[in-house]
Structure formats: C-alpha cells, structure tokens
Computed example of a mutant assay.
Amino acid sequence: MKQLKVDQLEPDMILAESVYSASGKVLLAEGTKLTPDLIKRLMEMQVPRVCVNDENTIPIDPNEVLTNRVHTQALRILGTVIPADLCGSRLEDAQFRYELVAETIAKIMETKEVHELFLDLRTIDDDTLDHSITVCVLSLIVGAALKFTPDRLYMLGIGAMVHDIGKKAVPPEILAKREDLTPQETQMFQAHVKEGYRILREHGFDVPIAKVALYHHERWNGSGYVNRLAGDNIDLFSRIVQTADVYDDLIRGLTYKQKYLPHEAMEYLYGAGNFYFDVRVVKAFTSSISAYPLGSLVKLSTGEIGVVVNVQKTSAPRPIVKICYDKNNNRLDYPRQIDLSEEKTIFITKIL
C-alpha cells in the first residue's frame, strides 16, 4: 500500500482504503478501481491524498463488492415498504409482488452495463446511490401493481436505478447547495437530464430506458423540465419514476427545504395527482407501498406512542397502531389498537 496525492493517481489503480467525505460518509469504497472520471471527481472534491494498492496487494473486484451491497440494500428496502396484512388474499398478493420484484432486482444486478455505473452513482455525492436504489425498488413495486410483464418490469427497474446518472456532470458544490440556486446554477443542474440520456445511450441502453433519465423531471401538467411535456406525452416508465423520485426526495429532504413524514409525502402525492403526477400511477403507488412498515415505532398527535401492527391496502398512510405508552410515557398494562383510517383526527407526528 502506498499514499499518493490525487494529481499522482492514474487510471486502473486500486484504492487500498476508503475515501470519506467531511461528514464521514464513504465517497469511494476500498477496492474501487480508479477511472479518469473518478480521479477528476476526487480533484473536484479537493481530496488531498489517497491510499492505493501496490504490486504486493491481492486485488479484489470493486464492482462485485458494490453490486453485492446494492443488492442487499434493495432487498432490505423491499422488505420494509411492501404492505402486508396478517392474513387473507392481500398477503398472498403482497408475497407474489415481493417475489416478482426480488427476482427482477436479481436480474438487474446481473446486468453488467448497470453495475458498471454503480461506482459513478456512488461518487456523485453522499446520497445519490442510496436514493437510486430506493427509487428503483419503489418503481418496481408500482410496475408490479400495474401488471407489467417481467420484461417491462426489468426495463423499468434499470431506468429507475440509473435515472440520476447525469448528475455526474453537475459540479459538486451545486449538488450540495441547500439554498436556492441562482438561474445559472439551476440551468447547470437541470442539464443533468440530457446528460443522463447521452450517457445511457453511449453505454448501449435502449431508448425507453434512457428516456427515464431525460423525462423524470417532467410533470403531468407540463410544468416540468426540460421539454415541458405533459400528460401521456410523458412515457409511463418516466411517470412512475418521477413519482417515486419525488416521494423519496420528500422523506429524505434532498431537494425540498424540509423533510416530510412518510404519510405527509403520500398526501402530497394524493393532492398532486392529475396535476404534477399521473393519478393512475399515484393510486398504484399509495395502495402498494407502506408509508409506515410493520413494526415501526411511532408517536401520535395525542402524545401516545405505539407500534404499527397492520397496514390497510386502501389507506396505507394511515395504519393500525397498537398504543403501548400514554402521553406521559407510562407503559400501558393493557395496550389497545387504533385504526388511523377511521380516527381521522389522530395522526402520526414522528417516527421513533
């Protein structure tokens, strides 16, 4: 192992130690094979030195390491967001969708053209790869709810996974900025959709997949960018991915100025159906994805604390909660259940 300044790095060198951001998040994982783009990114992030392997180091395949991590994370997300009743036909339906989506994820992980882009997604910023994985899983669940064939589901999943690849061309300081962007910065940021389309076509992806990168910021009413498409002029893949993209942005607080609770993000989608989003996609999304996974510990507007024990398919943002603690944090001897889909004046205020 040897330590080098970033301007001494050469393509095909292997990182011997992970590179971290100022906040402690991994920017490049140990074992990553450096490319010209990655070296440029390190320079832009003003990383002073990195450790690389020398001729005595046993090499590992960084793509395989990262692909395994992405696969594991995707399955973990899948296991938490598909709502499942404790019995009945809806449990069977949820299990079928879980297996279908899990199989599609596995097929995506085996696609060389996709996992070759994981490193690029990981180095864009601290959140892009995690966001892309989540958007992929959410989009696949919606596609399954809309009865997509396995082939269409596979294409949708790839498009969702790499929808933000164009951000690699956006300066890091713009991606990291939380204040309002200047007009010039906005133009530079919005250019990532065209750049993403270009990158995906150059990597040999089919047009329907590359269109997701180009159109995922379009809106149903024509107010999006960059082509101002509206309604059915936006392809269905992109309409699904844009819905999943906004939902995850809201609950992560990535683009918006505040973090939303999951049910608040769901209600935002409800309210924007047939305005910003295709209402058919919104209905499939909100009926198929659990805002509060089973077992979530939540605080209610009454001050009481409970555990989510069931999710009604028709009202996923308002689950059944078993109240375990009163508003003074005293444990109840006899916990009781409350169905938030019926108790309209009570709502979840916090996930604990």
Rank of each mutant, 00 (worst) to 15 (best):
H131N: 08
T149L: 12
A291K: 02
L75R: 11
V241M: 01
T80V: 10
A291G: 14
E343N: 12
E110K: 15
E179V: 12
G273K: 11
I174S: 05
G159M: 03
S139F: 00
D61S: 14
V321Y: 02
I174L: 07
L146A: 10
T72N: 11
L236S: 05
P293L: 08
M13P: 01
T186P: 00
D85I: 04
E30P: 00
R201C: 10
P183Q: 10
A16H: 12
M45G: 00
S21D: 11
R178G: 03
Q190I: 01
V226Q: 04
M155A: 13
E202A: 12
E10V: 09
D245R: 01
A244T: 04
K25H: 14
E304W: 05
K313H: 13
V207W: 05
I39W: 05
R97F: 03
S18D: 09
I240T: 04
T57H: 12
S223T: 14
R152A: 15
P59I: 09
L332C: 12
A272K: 13
G143K: 02
D180G: 08
H263K: 07
G224R: 03
Q190S: 07
M155I: 03
W220S: 02
L294G: 09
K2M: 13
R69V: 09
Y276R: 11
A94E: 07
D248K: 04
K112F: 13
Q190C: 04
D180E: 15
R41Q: 06
D333S: 15
D326N: 15
M161A: 14
A22V: 13
R280H: 15
A102Q: 06
K322F: 00
A316F: 00
A265R: 01
R97A: 07
A272P: 00
K299A: 09
L75F: 09
S132R: 03
T149F: 05
M109P: 08
S296E: 03
S301P: 06
V279D: 15
V137Q: 08
T255D: 08
N221T: 03
V81W: 04
Y247G: 03
R90V: 02
V47P: 01
F189K: 07
Q184W: 12
E64V: 14
V162K: 00
E113D: 14
G31K: 04
G143V: 04
I199N: 06
R198T: 05
R318P: 00
Y20E: 05
V6T: 14
S18L: 02
I105D: 02
I320M: 10
R239C: 04
L91W: 09
I338C: 11
T72H: 11
A210S: 11
L27I: 12
A284E: 07
V114A: 14
